Computed example of a mutant assay.
Amino acid sequence: MKKNAPSIQDILAFIAVAQYASFTRAAEFFGTGKAGMGKAVQRLEEHLGTRLFQRTTRAVTLTEDGETYLEAARAAMEQLNNAESILAARKDKPNGRVRLDIPVGFGCFIIPELPRFQKQFPEVLLELSLSDKASDAVGEGWDIVLRVGELPADGEMIVRKMCDLSLGFFASPIWLKSLPPILNISDMLDQHAIVFRAASGVLRPWIITDGGVLKEIIPSRKTVIRDGRSIVDAVRAGMGIAQIFTLVGDVYTENSELVRIFPDQNIPGPPVYALIPVGTKMPLKTRVVLNFLAELLQK
């Protein structure tokens, strides 16, 4: 039968007896009876299968095994005390590692802002993954997972809505110069499209306005790509027109790598959610990262 692990109280009793070389003085230190100290050491000796003290009417001295165990016990207690101090400090100041999983396409506007976050919170260390797959925040150990679109209810997750995205049509300026002017939706639909295929295998349709009514279409002439960053790279390379989130596309219009077609037309897009594992209280380190992401997404 597997032995039960010794209790912290029994180990502390052993350390006290060793320090004072006396069961009586150790008991006085703890404010308990001498018999209780003796039973604590006895339980520890039974668990370890060895004697820790030589006891006489005049003295209590450590055995060789006792000296070995005392060194290890003191080191372990010191590590626990250090850990408690670190955890106590984190309650007042963000400190520690935060594991973050975000959509691939969001990297272009989130990563350039991270130096600002590091300057503000130097003790928070980020472990960052860019992925469009449906990550299991609990099973994979993520602290925050950002995902786009409606999400099923999950009892093991806290779901926080971060923002609603808008959609726009983008193309490279060099590619557009090779085409006749695009004056309306019909002109655009005649051109080569770049379309996203979700992890589920479903093609994400373009959403267009037709007489003030929103409609979904799948362009007939298209290149299909499975991750958001590669879609942006394909548009920048001049492969065609793509409908992408304006939050992402506008990053590249600012440096003239992309042109937004119909810039006055804002088409409502899907929501962005943050998934956080359920806990008694969100750590401060996680909260400051979550608030920082909300600030970026709501620009």
Rank of each mutant, 00 (worst) to 15 (best):
I194P: 04
G155S: 13
M162R: 05
S178I: 05
I194V: 15
G139C: 06
L151Y: 10
I185V: 14
I185W: 08
A198Y: 09
D187Q: 12
A198M: 10
E140N: 13
E156W: 10
L165D: 11
F196V: 02
L189T: 06
D136P: 03
Q191H: 10
V145C: 08
Q191T: 11
A198N: 12
A198H: 09
F169W: 00
I158P: 00
R147M: 09
R160G: 06
I174F: 05
N184I: 04
R147K: 09
D143T: 04
L179W: 02
D164P: 06
S200F: 03
M157S: 06
S186G: 08
I144N: 00
D187L: 12
L176M: 07
A153H: 07
W175E: 03
G201K: 10
W175P: 01
S172E: 15
L189F: 07
S186F: 13
D187T: 08
I194H: 06
I158L: 11
G139R: 04
G201H: 10
A193W: 00
S178K: 06
F196W: 05
Q191I: 07
R160Y: 08
N184Y: 07
S200K: 03
P152L: 10
S178Q: 14
G168R: 01
S200I: 06
S166V: 05
I174G: 13
W142E: 01
P180C: 12
